[in-house]
Write a protein that binds this DNA or RNA. Structure first.
Lengths: 264, 264
DNA sequence: CGCCTTCTTGAGATGACTCAATGGTGGTGG
DNA sequence: CCACCACCATTGAGTCATCTCAAGAAGGCG
């Protein structure tokens, strides 16, 4: 049943300061999230469900909204934008998936995708057949519980963004996004090169920032300028630097405890 | 272990055109959602996890953000607002829970609540101990899978609201909220009295509408006036009436297929 | 009957948007 | 290796949607 592994169009164009994705190791080694704390027997058993590893270059669409896509994925390396669009072309990025994150899980696992996924950097993905996932979760309850838990965690991210979008100013939303991604990237640590004490590699264009927090690119630029002027944070040369952690914590109302729980 | 059932302060004040909650029948009968399609043996087994039924009057807080609350609930009757607040008092309603919905499930089932729940109408709830839920899901995988699925569905609601909050105008968001609640209420049908072909009972004040779609109450009023003037929809006497379904569908971009899947 | 909450309406302020032009930067091809 | 081109970021000027503040009207509840 499992189709042969594929490692197609690796690293086409793109600055990719992150360096090209490192070699694909064994699934359980790198896919921390879904399989964290899962008994070894379950892990081995799970291998039968894997359908290979894929690599996509930056900017490539992994799956589209409404597409009948066969896989869901664990993200090994890189950043993926998960988004939803309106008929008039407006697009909201729901979350950024980072290494270890699972993408493609939704209420109706046999229907079309409700969201789109687009590679922001070059990415490596581990594929699972959507049609068999619910089944897999029923057969391996620990895994199912873990999936539920991860999704609940993604829900919390979504809720924070909704709170920000509904109730907060441009600069506050901007600060919040920076803090969230700063801490999430720090957390996956060595999987994302380029992190320092006060900064991380930042692959997002201002257009994408705007799509994530509901601003026009022009206003993103002005807001960024304001954060810079206040000495709070800056994005330059594809890096985010937090200059004033205290000030940013205050402005963003980012709750660090969000990131401290042992489960991703 | 299970504490005695409680049926406390029923129906204190409040217009409550919905009429007071009807009597509490057996759990599985009314809690369609979580137990939908679950084998009978699992259902019976589940009874051991129930910790009684509660009734809350309108406006009462079921649990607060950051509170170490012992229960999660299936909602039997009434509407509950699930919200998240900022230190300065601004409050975003994440979703409205309707009969059959599950509330209180989150990534960290042993930590404090990440959201608050407030009864909008008088409500009846069926309580489950949070501490034992993950366990329950591992022991009854079907139930765990169902919970994951339900939560994925709530995630989709949240995503639609984030899309609306980030990308759409006041009147579009308003129309979307109306359409969502109209169809969700129609779907739970006889559990919510007062539904007609073109309208439903509407317990929300304009303040709450604003908290759900990110508008000030003043602007909610003006936006409502505009919808009324355009002959699209109206809220009067605690009822929502959709006057122009086609126009509302166009304006709201509400996708009816969202509601058509067999699972809630 | 009277209070208190909710809704409505007006006037003015403002944060974010639009349109448009300019300036960088990196990748590509000659 | 340089020049061009495309894409992205910046800045300015003007507009508009939504907010704020404030007053008054309506409706439900004790």
């Amino acid at each position: 049943m499992p189709m042969s592994n594929k490692k197609p169009p690796a690293a086409r164009g793109m600055k990719q300061k992150n360096g090209p994705p490192s070699q694909c190791a064994k699934c359980p080694v790198r896919a921390l999230a879904l399989f964290q704390g899962i008994p070894h027997e379950d892990l081995d058993w799970t291998q039968g469900y894997r359908e290979g590893e894929f690599a996509f270059p930056a900017k490539k669409v992994v799956y589209r909204e409404r597409e009948q896509h066969p896989y869901a994925y664990t993200l090994y390396s890189g950043w993926v934008a998960i988004s939803k669009s309106l008929p008039d072309g407006k697009c909201q990025i729901m979350r950024f998936a980072l290494p270890g994150d699972f993408i493609g899980f939704q209420a109706d696992m046999s229907g079309p995708m409700t969201l789109a996924a687009t590679a922001i950097t070059n990415v490596e993905l581990c594929a699972f057949p959507r049609s068999r996932m619910m089944n897999m979760f029923v057969e391996r309850p620990q895994l199912g519980a873990r999936m539920a838990q991860m999704n609940a965690r993604y829900m919390e991210l979504c809720q924070h963004h909704l709170l920000a979008a509904g109730q907060r100013s441009a600069i506050e939303r901007m600060a919040f996004l920076m803090m969230e991604l700063f801490f999430r990237v720090q957390r996956v640590g060595n999987m994302v090169p380029g992190s320092t004490e006060d900064g991380i590699a930042w692959p997002l264009a201002q257009l994408q920032i705007g799509q994530a927090i509901g601003l026009t690119p022009v206003h993103v630029s002005r807001t960024l300028k304001e954060l810079r002027a206040q000495g709070l944070a800056d994005i330059r040369d594809h890096r985010l630097i937090i200059n004033d952690m205290e000030g940013m914590t205050e402005l963003s109302q980012y709750d660090i405890s969000m990131e401290q729980s042992e489960m991703l």
